[in-house]
Design a protein around this nucleic acid. Structure first.
Lengths: 219, 219
DNA sequence: GTCTATAGCTTGATAGAC
DNA sequence: GTCTATCAAGCTATAGAC
């Protein structure tokens, strides 16, 4: 049998490597983590990385793609539900379909999703290969949301829609990064990891922004 | 004479090291750049880093602080002007005072400011030490803006103001990161480095968000 | 599949000459 | 101030045994 092709239960060592790598990359970035950091913590040999993923980069790509597929499916489903309800849908409902699946995962019991989103925050803001990487894994799905927003905002300028999405993306990924800066800045009023409090505000914040930019067509 | 203490013209090699390091760190991150990458490009010896900055970390800190001081002074001045005009000032004017000095620098002829802001984007989203670092260099100034916003939004919930600032920060720094993702996503309609187009939309986008979150007090 | 062993290179730091 | 020279440690990748 080929190495767990299509298998439901991949080799436990392979899985261990991915999961440890995910956490360490999220904490310290691609270049801040060595294969030895990963494999020693996983209790396996370095050579297994070559065997399963061919290289450090291969491991990184595999781990990025793994959850992207899951997340994209959930977001596509959420959008579909919203549009079934009414099309064009309210802007706020579309934004919510984009962010709610993330919130659900991030507050779940599984801490590895949190690590994954923290990693995405760094990728999204990486000037060297971040744009290309985010595009590869997420743009097909994002296009579905852009289409829905275009319908929800008739007469909107194309560039306006894309820039507003850009602002949403920045606000959203800084949230994942969970840097605890806000804890210090606010003197304890806010907590970086209080994702429910953030989500509750992010959706109306961004929706108001979209409507202000894309609906005032007398500029 | 002590090494250029208080001098207006620091040693040209020291300056070269800082400027090259700034660009390389911005492109590849702290761990993606070696001292040899920096010093070989600067045409100086590695040992000079130890002499001038004591360590790689020392170099990084020095370069971060250098422009933070300049930027903070310009932002403080911009805010002062706005508040002189009217206090409380319109939210949009306050946001503009926060972002306009950045825009002015980023579109200037000096490309090293652009590198600096790209670096800030990565620092701001770094989960390990990003929060602490951003707080150290920027929170004293940010507090002045929070105060102005609080006056401009009477009755606003404290947490709401901080979270809205957080969204602003995320949207703003992703913009600096200049990842060119939007170029591909928009099929060429938008350009990642068209900072004037972005700024023109960012200010009203964020202002609308602030007003929506902080002024609807019947939630 | 998993490991041992190691090649071949790069890293940050620094002691000491000039 | 600047450089030479070097250290000890780390790195990724991989050939080959089991």
């Amino acid at each position: 049998m080929k190495r767990d092709a299509g298998s439901k239960a991949p080799n436990p060592r392979k899985k261990r490597i991915i999961e440890i790598a995910e956490r360490l990359f999220a904490q310290r970035g691609f270049n801040g983590v060595s294969l030895r950091d990963i494999t020693s913590e996983a209790g396996v040999d370095v050579a297994l990385v070559k065997y399963y993923f061919d290289s450090k980069q291969g491991l990184f790509d595999a781990l990025l793609k793994r959850r992207a597929d899951v997340l994209n499916a959930e977001r596509a489903e959420a959008l579909k539900m919203v549009l079934q309800n009414s099309d064009p849908a309210p802007v706020e409902d579309i934004i919510n379909a984009f962010t709610q699946p993330i919130l659900t995962r991030i507050v779940s019991d599984d801490p590895s999703w949190r690590a994954y989103f923290g990693l995405l925050a760094q990728v999204n803001n990486n000037p060297e290969w971040g744009g290309k990487t985010m595009s590869r894994y997420f743009d097909p799905l994002v296009r579905q949301f852009i289409d829905a927003l275009r319908n929800a905002l008739p007469g909107a300028d194309e560039a306006d829609i894309y820039w507003c999405y850009h602002f949403l993306s920045g606000a959203l990924t800084l949230t994942f990064a969970d840097t605890r800066r806000i804890d210090a800045l606010s003197g304890g009023v806010c907590h970086s990891s209080d994702f429910e409090a953030i989500h509750q505000r992010l959706v109306p914040f961004v929706s108001a922004g979209f409507q202000n930019i894309c609906q005032n067509k007398g500029k």
